[in-house]
Structures are given as structure tokens and as C-alpha cells.
Design a protein around this nucleic acid. Sequence first.
RNA 1: GGGUCGGUAGCUCAAUGGUAGAGCAGCGCCCUUUUAAGGCGUUGGUUGCGAGUUCGAGUCUCGCCCGACCCA
Length: 619
Amino acid sequence: MDRWLFAKPAGGWKSKRRFVVGAGLCGARGYLTRPMFWTEEVAERAGAGPHIINDSKTPSGRVHVGALRGVLIHDAIFRTLKERGVEVRYLFGVDDYDPVDEIPKGEDSHFGQHIGKPLCNTPAPCGAEGDMAEFYIREFWQVFDELGVKVERYRMRDIYRAGKFDAEIDMILRNADKVRAVYKEVSGAVRPEHWLPFQVICEQCGCIATTEVSDYDGSTVAYSCLTSRMVNPKLGLGKGCGHEGRISPFGGNGKLPWKLEWVAKWKQFPVTIEGAGKDHSTRGGSRDVSAACYKAIYGADEPLRVPYEFFLVGGAKMSSSKGIGASARDMANLLPPEMLRFLMMRTKPNSPVNFDTHEEGIVKLFNEFDRAHTRYFAKQATPDEAMTYRLACLREPQPYKPANIQLATALVQMPHLDARAEMAKRLGTLTPADEGHLDERLASAREWVANFAAEEEKTRLQETLPARAAELTHVQRAFLHALADSLPEKWEDDAIQSRVFEVARMTPIEQPQAFKALYRVFLDREAGPKAGNLLAFLDRTFVEKRCREMVFDVAEFWQQSASTPEALAKWLEKEKDNIAGETSDIATHGTWVAKDIIYTFKDGKRVRKRLLSGGTALV
RNA sequence: GGGUCGGUAGCUCAAUGGUAGAGCAGCGCCCUUUUAAGGCGUUGGUUGCGAGUUCGAGUCUCGCCCGACCCA
């Protein structure tokens, strides 16, 4: 469908969607326009700038794959603004002053004693160096690098300790009454009169989640570490120590609750664009609270909102106890960076992205990306498609020959095959870009097979004849016997491949049926890699034995393979110029009489045709 | 319980109140010693259900059902 439309005249028709105004007038009906890509809409709403985009992550465990949605949405907006010549920065913060409130899987003994403390004051697990926050954010930063997401990184511990939020902390504490009013009005949460929006780190036990602060005098606050508060009631952990004291709220002695932390960031940096996931973005949610506080305290408008839906990954291993596939790192191992970006770019922020790691989902994603790539370089892409593709690429798009993912996953499962060589053979002459792409694609294929493929999706050589071989027709069984009878002396892929075709013509059997029979008895699948390759690396006697395992009935076989005289005549008419000669012989089986005619083509090929009579009298 | 968003072909999703579309899957045909490849064609819909507004509703309004999320 043509995406170029005539926009209705301004003021005439109502329009929900924004349009890009194209070049000049086009007739009397309106301007030549096209619908905006979602990043362009955001850029348009954002205005001239300069802009500061902000996003952040609390590294309380391995960073979940869903966190990439916001990261990449912000990156796409960042790149679009830059392309438009707008001055823009992209900041990304580590919320490492947040408390430990949950325990990462399997780390109970290590983190149990630290629950309630700031992440950056908690040692890393597994005896690793550094603190918990650094430990978990490190692999997330690595993914940023691989995805080509270039952000200005900051850590909340540095911000607080350097006193960069001191002015905001002071302002917010002085306006605590406004904060309480907003909480009550916007989200219905009632806070006690003495409550102040701040949490200090308890000087006695080091917890930050258990303290309650009151009485700000301009330089210090009073606090108590509540024994009545449990950071994680489910686990029964993180009780306060009962300590009471007075301390300065500045210089890293404590932090703002994160709804106010947002306010401080917006004010200090200052942030002009910050999206948030749907969990924060609903009415009366945390984003509304933060925005209202910002307005109440500073009289300022919140940064541009970009509410976005979730990024959900389902599939084979996701629900397994191993937990592979749930983290950003795991997903980056499976999907090349462009693919992961593509997944996010093509879906508008307000729609959820559901990605399935089952074979079908993987194949579909890769093939769609390859089609986008091909269309882009063939200049057949629509404006939206081109934009999606360009934003998916890490740098200026480079041409290369796409390597089919389905073939790649098949080949890497054949231990006796050189998958790379097989793929390369099919692609033809390779440029360095082709080679790089091919290696990347094979790595994805191997990762999928190793960590994501369900058992039934894997290609496995069948040690014994699979049960479903019973579904083979008698022609297919006869074909396998005939193949066993005439396996080539030279046990090489080309010779075997040729022989398969020849035996198929001489059985006779339709080619697809012949190949399906082979894949069934050896792999228990409908299809597979090139048959010659597959067989060449198996033991010859094993192949011969397997091919003879299914018995067939001659009468059934003949009936399934016979031509009608009409069909034969039609075929002869078509092929007569290519046929050099023919021989025939008669065979009988019970009351059936088969006349087999073998036609020899001018190029040496031989084809058997079978005419059948009799049989009916006895049946 | 209150709120937000969504429900369109088998699947994933488009569609400015103006003829409901695309990709994939499926099906059919063609080609082929590239057999998990290639080419061409094509089926498929009570737009969750029911009312209303309108010349006209997938789109707007109301009610209900289902799902996700937020708040309590």
C-alpha cells in the first residue's frame, strides 16, 4: 500500500496522527505528506532543544531483558534528534543508592545479611570484587556497548556524595508539606504530618530502607531506624535496628525517595525528555506523582513523556528453572545487536513487544530483518521501513548477503559438517562484510540451539528407526530399498546426492517424497540439510541398514507409483524431443502386471514410468 | 473494589468517522542435481459481545465479557 497520502487541509479534517509535510504543493487537494515515524513524532513534540534525555536502572540483580525497551527507545529518540541537528545529550544513571530489597536467585546466604542497605554498600556476590551495584551493572554496560548505545553514565552514589543534589534535597525538605499534599491528592497515599521525603543511612546498622526522617532544621534531620519496619516481609528480612539520631541529609548521608529523586534529576541536569514504562505511566502512578511534585515545588513542567509498553520474551527456556534467556545479557547473546534494535524500532512505544524464542519466532524475526535489509538496499523500502532499518543499524548501513537463519540452525547441528563452508558455498563470493555477517549469524544459530531450542526443535540423528517412519508410504519405502541397493562406491556428498536423484527417477517417486523419506528415517523430521551431505558423513553400512528397515508391499508400491496411460502420453508429448531411447520389461506380482518403461534422455538421464494392469479381479 | 490501556485473518500487527489491509503461516501452480532453496498465484473477517450517535462506526458514546498493568 502506498504510504504517501494527501493530507486533508488544515482545520478541515480532524487528524490524530501527525504528518511530515512533503515537498511543496501537489494539486489543489492538499500537501503531499507522509505519516511520521514514531521517533519523528517524539522529536516534533520535543521541539527545538537543547535537550537532555535521561534514563536509569536499579541494579538489584541481573538486569532483565525488559530494561532494554526504554534504553533503545531513548536511543532512537536521541539519534533522531541528532539527525535533525538538535543539540541533545543522553544520560543514564545507576540507582545504586537504592536499598537491597530482594535477593537475586540463589544468593540468599550472601545477601540475606545486607537487605535494606544501599546497593553500593553491599559486597558483590560470589567473592567478586567491588560492590553489588557494580557487579550487576557491568554486564548491562557491556550490552550497551554492543548495541551501540552511547550514553553519559553516572552513578547516584557519586551524585549524592559529591553533594550535587544538596540544593534539591534542601528545597524538597523545605517543601515537604507540598509533597505530602501531592501524595494524597494524586495517588491517595497519606503520609504522617512529621514524615519527610528522605531516607538516611542508619549510622548503626547501615540500612537505608528502614529509616524514617523528621524535623528538618536546615542543616540536619532527626531519624529513627524502625524496628517495626520490614524491608522484605515475605522473607522476614530487613528489620530496622532501633537506632535514633540526628544527621545532615547532605553529602551522601542519605537519599531522596525515588519519586523525588526524579524531581531532583529533572531540576539539576536538567532533564527535558524522559520516558517511563507502563508500570509507572498509568494515571495516579509514580510518574504523575513526580510530575506534580516538580510542579508544586519548582513550578516547572515535567520532561516530555514517552510512555512505553513492556518487552516480553517468551519461549522454550524462559519458564525453565535455569532462567536462561531472561537477562539482557542472554538476549544479546542470542540476537545480533541490529536484530535486537530492530525488534524495538519497528514497534511503536505504546505497543508491547512479544518476542518468542521458539523456532518459528526466531526464524520470523531474522527473515523479516533480512527482508528489511534487502528492501533498503534495493530502494524498495517505504519511508517507515527505511527509518526502522536505519535506526536498527549500529552505524551507516552496509550491504552484505543475508545468510538464512533456518539453514544456519540446521547446519550447526550437523557435527560432521563445516557449517560455515556450507553456508559460504551457497552465498557465493564473499566480501569482508559478508564474512562478518556470516560469522555473526552462525553464532546466533549456535546460541539458539545450545540455550533456547526446545528438544523437539533440535535436529538429531536418530540412533534407531523413529516410530513415525511407519507413516511412510510404500513408494517411499521402496525408494529407500532401491537406494540401499545402489549406494555409490564413492562415498562423497556429490556422488550420493546424484544417486538420490537418480534412484528417485528410477523408482519412480516424486522428488519431495524421496527427500522426506530420507529425513524421516535419519532425522525424524520433514526436511533437513542437503541429503548428500547428511549421508556422506554417516557410516555406509548404517545408511544401508536403515534404508532397508521399513518393509514394503509390492502391490501397494506399484499402485502408488504407476502412471495412467493418459498421464504418460502427456508427459511423452512434453519430453519427446529430449528422449533418446527406451526399453521396457514386464513384471508380475500376484494378479498384477506391471509394464516398466525406461526412457533414456539425450543427456544420459534415465526415467522409469510404470503402467499397471490386473489385480482388481482378486481384490 | 477504583483506574489506565488493549481485544481486527491461524499468528504478529496496520488502517485520519469514508471500499477492513500487510507480512508470516496455509493452499495451489511452476522451476530445479541449490530439496529447510527460488518464482508466481490465492483462500481466509459478524473488527470480543450488545445497544446508541451518524448519511456512514474497527474508529465516537454507554453497558457487559476477557487480558495486561497501576492504585487500594
